Amino acid sequence: MDMKQGPVKMEVFKLEPGDIDHLFRRSGLTGNPLSVFRYNAEQAAVTSPSARFKTLTESPAFQTIARQLLEPDLKISFHTGGANAAEDQYYALLSKETSTVLAQFSSAEGDLLLLYFPGEKAFLEWWTGTYASPGMDDYPALFGSGILESEVLICALHCVDMYRRFYLESMLDYRGVVDVAASSADFGQLLKRALASGDKRWLLPALVEITPGLKSIPIALKPEHMQKIEELGFITSKDAVFTLAERSRLMGTEFISAWMNATGWQASALIKGEERSLSRVFLAVTAFTNHLFSFETGSGGEGRFRHQTANASELAGTLLQWTTALRRAVPAGAGPQRNFCGQCGGKISPDKKFCGHCGAAL
């Protein structure tokens, strides 16, 4: 699917931390477990909203924005970082009642920045323009088009990081040749150290640390996983010695010279009243392409993944298909429940037409 870039339409609102309680009160919403906010009635009673809050209340989209922020049907949690990029965490919030998307950011001071998009296409055009690389066409496939076990990806990205490590060591030692061989024991020890380090300057730790919920997927490395990365061209093995093959060298060189950033995200929805993960994705961005890894859990609880490379336009199209599928997967809910009067903040019964405290029409 091709998505042509053009001027991105969105509305921008900025709120102060205390405005959230007034947003609950004015909208009459109570919130749900997907929202990161909870209503503090006592705080709302003794504080006044900021001048910025008035701008939001005057928007025709006020109630829709409040609904998506406080009672979303679908939450996509993003975590950016990797390489030497600055870290950030933010959310995209969607509702089954509308096609709009609300992106929620927080500043270091706790201020809330809301970007309101008229639809998923507009949001994804903005997102790929901000976080992805333009990329090149026809970048070669690295893992094929099928589903593989997550351990295969763990081993392959470790090979890429090992090449990067050996390359840097050769420079520090003033050697013109990069060592590309390691014993099986050294391979395993370096893998354990990498996973334990949490150092997101390296590709493998970035994958595990940045992708929400990925640590919960069990990892059980087996000989067949090493055999698979050998078939894929990442290593050759002989007499308990692993030699990094062409694919490790090519991908390692790409991430040495052109790794820009990474983003991990997780989509979640309410299933029987509890937040449940629907999908996890990791994106490693280089100047050459966008490496997209999507994860799923097999029937036996094992982790599996797919990989594809894409330019920015192809990536936006893929993610549009992804969000469309997620919307279909979200269970039908009861809709927003207005339990507080938007005029005085008093508690009301769902079947009432007027507030019993101030008489305001509901």
Rank of each mutant, 00 (worst) to 15 (best):
G301N: 12
N290A: 04
C358G: 10
E314F: 05
G356N: 10
P336E: 07
C344Q: 02
A284L: 00
Q337K: 15
E296P: 00
E314R: 12
F288Q: 14
L278V: 05
T286L: 06
R306A: 04
T286F: 08
G301A: 12
K347D: 08
S277A: 15
G301H: 11
P331E: 00
R280K: 04
P350C: 15
V285E: 13
N290P: 05
Q337N: 10
G359S: 08
F305M: 11
F340S: 13
G317S: 10
N290G: 04
F295C: 08
S349Y: 08
G333M: 06
A316T: 02
E274D: 14
L326F: 03
P350M: 14
T289F: 00
A361C: 09
D351L: 12
H357A: 12
L326I: 02
F288E: 15
E302A: 13
S313K: 02
V330S: 03
F305Y: 14
A287Q: 14
F288L: 15
E296T: 05
G273D: 06
T324Q: 02
H357S: 13
H291Y: 10
R328C: 02
E314P: 02
G317F: 07
G273F: 09
A310F: 03
Q337V: 14
A329W: 00
T318A: 13
I348R: 15
L320P: 06
F354C: 04
R327Q: 08
A287C: 07
A287V: 06
D351H: 13
C355N: 10
S277F: 06
R338G: 04
R327E: 05
R338D: 01
P350T: 14
A284M: 00
E302T: 13
N311G: 06
P331S: 00
S349P: 00
G356S: 13
H291T: 07
L292Y: 11
F282A: 15
F293T: 12
K353Q: 14
A312R: 12
L319F: 15
R327W: 03
Q308I: 10
C355R: 09
L326K: 03
F305A: 11
W322F: 14
E275V: 13
F295D: 08
A312G: 07
G359W: 06
S294G: 10
G342H: 07
G298V: 03
L292P: 01
S349M: 12
E274T: 11
E275L: 04
G303I: 04
N290Y: 05
R328M: 09
F354T: 12
Q308H: 11
R328W: 04
S313N: 02
G359I: 07
L326A: 05
A329K: 01
T318Y: 10
K347W: 07
K352I: 02
